[in-house]
Design a binder for these strands. Sequence first.
DNA 1: TTTTTTTACGGAAACGTTTCCGTGAAAAGC
DNA 2: GCTTTTCACGGAAACGTTTCCGTAAAAAAA
Lengths: 333, 333
Amino acid sequence: MNKIDIRYLAKELNLAISTVSRALRDSHEISPETKEKVFALAKRLNYQPNANASGLRGQKSKIIAVVIPDMVNDFFSLVISGIEKITQAQGYHFLLYFTHGDHALEVSFINTLANGRVDGVLLSITDENNNNEHLEELNRKGIPLVLFDRVSERMDNVKVTSDNYESAVTATRHLIDTGCKKIAYLKVHKSIPVGTIRESGYLEALEKYSKQPAPLILECTNDNDEAFAAIRNMLEKEKPDGIFASLEKLAVVCYRVCEQIQLKIPEDIKIISFSNLQTAALLNPSLTTITQPAFEIGETAARELLRIIRKKGGAKGDVVLKSRLIERKSTSK
Amino acid sequence: MNKIDIRYLAKELNLAISTVSRALRDSHEISPETKEKVFALAKRLNYQPNANASGLRGQKSKIIAVVIPDMVNDFFSLVISGIEKITQAQGYHFLLYFTHGDHALEVSFINTLANGRVDGVLLSITDENNNNEHLEELNRKGIPLVLFDRVSERMDNVKVTSDNYESAVTATRHLIDTGCKKIAYLKVHKSIPVGTIRESGYLEALEKYSKQPAPLILECTNDNDEAFAAIRNMLEKEKPDGIFASLEKLAVVCYRVCEQIQLKIPEDIKIISFSNLQTAALLNPSLTTITQPAFEIGETAARELLRIIRKKGGAKGDVVLKSRLIERKSTSK
DNA sequence: TTTTTTTACGGAAACGTTTCCGTGAAAAGC
DNA sequence: GCTTTTCACGGAAACGTTTCCGTAAAAAAA
């Protein structure tokens, strides 16, 4: 089978390669009749321009890279779906990379991407406390970068996030409003900024709206069994009547602990959690959540990136999207 | 900022471009000392070979395409994770495409991919009943293709699936064993082969292991509200004591219906479902599932594809992976 | 009519690699 | 000591586009 490239089309039509190329790109220098002939043949032979050749010549690939920690919860699945919607609509493609929480892997990905493979990068930072020389380098090379969800304040790229502080206040206040007198805040030990920001929201709300004498913060590890033990210990010792989990996996562990030590939700203890779990409504009892606009975060980040790619450096406007409190049975009075 | 290409390295080291290229690829024609110098400079300048240029010259991109219907349930997220593990380990990249159930979109994706952009394609077919001329075309062009989960028996590409028939038998039998006398099978109207295969498993099990006089099959639409109405109607009229849902979304709808018409699970009715829902254990009551080895399907499919890419056409061995029955409260006696 | 502009196209360079082919010098074989 | 082989590298072509530059012919302007 003959491979059909632009050269073959040209030969077949008795035209110069340049003419065919221009016709395909609908240049005004080409007569309508010639265009017609070229289009017809191209369609008939299902001609597809070689991506590497165009990319090499034009110094662009129509591909962006999406770098995220992983896909173990629904949040990033939804973000990806949002990104896909935009890239698909605008004729772009995307490569997907998981850093698995490994900063070195992130550095490696970013470095190997700065070689014409992609026109831009969408990144949710793996470890926000680590250095980001690799990102500075990306900026120096002029490769558009948009950060989302897990961002670094030290970078002045466009950032797309959700209102973690405000919704943490809302969540805490919701527990207070439903009668909780002693509210615990659960986080993971790796102090990712989003965790810290949510914590300040919790503290702020306690201060302002509650009479609780002292905050009650439990720092768990990433290990589920360890978290289970820690939470159980805390529940038995401190006996809080409200729990605010900063991550959905912590809420899930809480459910298990409560089952084991026979605490009834929401009678004995109320639980609220940040979560994008699509089955939150089906848990036993259904879980009240602060749900981030994950799909919209993906859409917005992608849209911003493509805008920058086209305009070669547009306005640097951060975008903060609103999360929603979805009240369910785990916090009913 | 100077862009550092191989030409720049050559000039800097007073070497020919070809020498540098060979050194970087660790050719035996280059002396160890020269290699050292080249490696050192390349590392110092963080040189990354231009992907489009290598791709164009070498006619390969080290990128594969992954085409799936969507990511609305955990199954495909897990598959993607499995694929990522393999591509990452073997130095490949992957582009992700969603067909959203639109056959024409699948055709369009496949066609535009056959232009050197990717070295191979991993596909879960959108509509197995539709024609697959686009896939034949891909085969003719010599672009490796591996099908997974939703495959077409008419294609003789490598296929990676799970044991839908056997596990449907197992699922039905599980309901029979827990005492169900009248078991309904729930499917969606689009007769995707996987649905049909599961149905035959259900029928086979009824025939062999149950005294149920006739099968009870309900065909739902993709619309959740319609499915709700249909299931409710069926439950009230037929009063089955066991439900086998071929898709997890149907099981979820069942839960809602049961709640509304006050049927107790598992006392009044038992439910089992194909599902990869990570929170199946947390539902109320926890849901007994047939869980497909999604991650392994992704791993296997990717591994097979990369093998074919390297060997340029290896053995055509289909792979069937085993699903697991995970017994939970929705089917307890 | 002559000159200028426009139209519609052709030729060739360039994008950054990889690899084929060639070659002088050193090493090996005789 | 002469021929042959090996070694280590250089030059240039090729991958398939896009676009710059050039140019006959036709159209417009003079």
